[in-house]
Amino acid sequence: MPLSVTESLALRSSEDVVRMRQWVRARAVGIGFSLVDQTKIVTAASELGRNILEHGGGEGHVYLDLPTHNSKIGIQLTFEDKGPGIADIEQALKDGFTTGGGLGLGLGGARRLVNQFEIASRPGEGTRITITRWKGP
């Protein structure tokens, strides 16, 4: 079985978010994701990447893994920043909640677009969000 290698990308600008979308798309295509599955993981990634720029102190990193589980392959992305963190995670996940001028759809929407969603955040320390989407069906 091939060893999974973690890749990473720094996020500092909205051009980096575009680069990240293309990178995630390429990996999703590479492991045979359907077009809909590709689009879902890329869209979730775009939301979380932009959140780092807008709310997470303006810079951070994305890590990409291709884990396997019960002979299924998937894409796992981890978004990390050392920004202000999220005081009330429940509230932040609610559709429509925003502290910026957004629609407040990014976090909740990203959670709906993937199979697993984990979030760890501490005020003043930063935020780490890990999402996984398995190759369907």
Partner: peptide, 14 residues
């Protein structure tokens, strides 16, 4: 709009 994009938008909640 591509169908995959439309499906994703609905799930995103937009």
């Amino acid at each position: 709009m591509q169908p995959a994009v439309a499906i994703t938008l609905v799930e995103l909640g937009l």
